[in-house]
């Protein structure tokens, strides 16, 4: 165990092009906020020979709504969690995302840590990921001379493993405009307020005449990656909304997870809590979307 880092080379490229030429995801690692990487380097879980700081690259710290792109939200690779959480565009347009970030309570982590960095850690316990899953976000990845764009669900490949290849960098997360009339809810169970989730759940739903017209359910900390509960979503879209539907969807969601036991919780408990949280989140989101008082779908 160590207190100090091992020596390494340090680069501060001024452009994404220069940066992607340097980073290889293994011996040369990208540094944004550093919250995760620096700790792992101290613990010798990462021993890169080169650290490539992205902090001097201009034009990556934006949180903006693109009026031309259908009102999508663009979050640059250097935008901090705190910046996103405090953005008026986010709190008004994508409150589910703000809610998920608010559940990360350490202010220093949010001031240092970037939203993109949070995804790039590749942890299934990310609080941001389920919200982005539920919101249908996409991830822009720059490579040498090209750029690709993938759905956030395809970004997570396994614990600590993402779709980012050597000589690639995530430059932006794009969150599409929220479906009209939709409401979301993020719920999380953790040992203490400042802990990582035992289980977290984000849902986004919209209704038309008492039936779900839009449903996305995402679950974190209950599988090797955050997962979408597609079967549960399909059930919601099929059935009339009522408490039993929410319960059935929650049961279906529990079948889409593969939790493990670890220092934070047990596999059994997590599986059980997926049911409770998904049902509760759906019920509360449905309330927010106005289905209970018959105001659903009015804007549609």
């Amino acid at each position: 165990m160590h207190r100090a880092l091992l020596p390494f080379e340090f680069s501060e490229p001024a452009s994404v092009e220069e940066a992607v030429a340097l980073v290889d995801g293994g011996r040369a690692r990208a540094l944004a906020g550093g919250v995760d990487l620096v700790l792992k380097m101290r613990l010798r879980q990462e021993t890169p020979e080169r650290v490539v700081s992205l902090q001097k690259i201009a034009g990556l710290d934006h949180v903006r709504v693109d009026a031309h792109g259908g009102g999508a939200l663009h979050i640059g690779a250097l935008a901090t969690l705190r910046q996103v959480e405090q953005s008026a565009a986010v709190t008004q347009g994508w409150p589910l995302l703000a809610e998920a970030i608010a559940s990360i309570v350490s202010m220093q982590t949010k001031v240092m840590g970037t939203l993109v960095g949070n995804l790039c850690v590749g942890t299934p316990a990310s609080d941001v990921a389920p919200a982005l899953f539920a919101l249908g976000a996409r991830v822009k990845i720059a490579g040498v001379g090209d750029e690709r764009d993938i759905a956030v669900e395809d970004f997570f490949l396994g614990p600590g493993v993402t779709a980012v290849r050597p000589h690639e960098l995530v430059t932006e997360v794009v969150v599409p405009a929220r479906p009209v009339g939709s409401a979301g809810r993020f719920l999380k169970l953790s040992k203490t307020a400042d802990d990582i989730a035992k289980v977290n759940v984000a849902v986004s739903v919209a209704f038309s005449r008492g039936t779900c017209a839009h449903a996305r359910i995402a679950i974190g900390s209950a599988a090797p990656t955050p997962v979408r509960a597609v079967a549960a979503e399909e059930l919601l879209l099929r059935e009339d909304w009522c408490p039993a539907t929410a319960k059935a969807a929650a049961e279906a969601a529990a079948r889409s997870v593969r939790p493990i036991s670890d220092v934070r919780s047990t596999a059994d408990y997590r599986a059980e809590m997926v049911k409770v949280l998904v049902r509760d989140a759906l019920t509360q989101a449905a309330d927010g979307a106005g289905v209970l008082d018959g105001h659903d779908g009015k804007e549609a």
């Binding site: 400042d194 802990d195 220092v263 934070r264």
Partner: peptide
């Protein structure tokens, strides 16, 4: 302290 959880101010 990430795995041994003492109370935070919020708790």
């Amino acid at each position: 302290f990430a795995t041994y959880k003492m109370l935070s101010a919020l708790d």
